[in-house]
């Protein structure tokens, strides 16, 4: 009886999340903002963006109440340098993923309104060309110690 009640309770708690996620064709997983020094003026956000719909999703920008500006950039190697190119939009084809990770595509969060610590929750609204915006919460985290190299391989 108690197990049954617990099950109903868990289901009830999980339901809003399921409905929320199910409503939007864009799924975001493994999201994080990499923690930085207290005076860091820019931080990077990494995540997996997955398009579960049959149509291409075009991300046109992002905003956060905790940052003056949020942009998307791509790090790439050219002429012996690591360069960054601002991405005015990101296209995710139907049923495809776009991975934001170190040394590649990333979210660039500029001018924080306050110093952010590991564990802080940052709301970020992602805007799409279909005017169907999605608000997510990213946690500020330190990278896994010494595990940086694995990110580069995938």
């Amino acid at each position: 009886m108690r197990i049954y009640q617990t099950f109903i309770l868990i289901l009830a708690m999980a339901l809003p999340a399921v409905i929320f996620a199910g409503n939007h064709p864009l799924h975001i997983s493994q999201g994080m903002i990499q923690a930085g020094p207290p005076n860091a003026q820019v931080l990077a956000g990494y995540m997996i963006l997955e398009n579960s719909s049959d149509k291409t999703i075009v991300i046109t920008g992002a905003t956060s109440p905790l940052f003056k500006q949020v942009e998307f950039h791509q790090t790439f190697t050219e002429g012996g340098m690591m360069r960054m190119r601002k991405q005015e939009q990101l296209s995710i084809p139907a049923h495809k993923k776009l991975i934001l990770k170190p040394g590649s595509y990333h979210m660039m969060l500029i001018n924080p309104t306050r110093s952010l610590q590991p564990g802080d929750q940052v709301p970020v609204t992602i805007k799409t060309s279909s005017k169907n915006s999605l608000t997510i919460t990213l946690t500020v985290k330190l990278p896994d110690s010494g595990m940086q190299e694995h990110h580069h391989h995938h």
Binding site: Q41, V42, P102, G103, P143, S145
Partner: peptide, 21 residues
Amino acid sequence: YTHCPDVCPTTLFIFKSVAKQ
């Protein structure tokens, strides 16, 4: 540089990890 969001923090975290070891 300190306004670098991606490559520099990644490298400094690697330095941190190497220094710790």
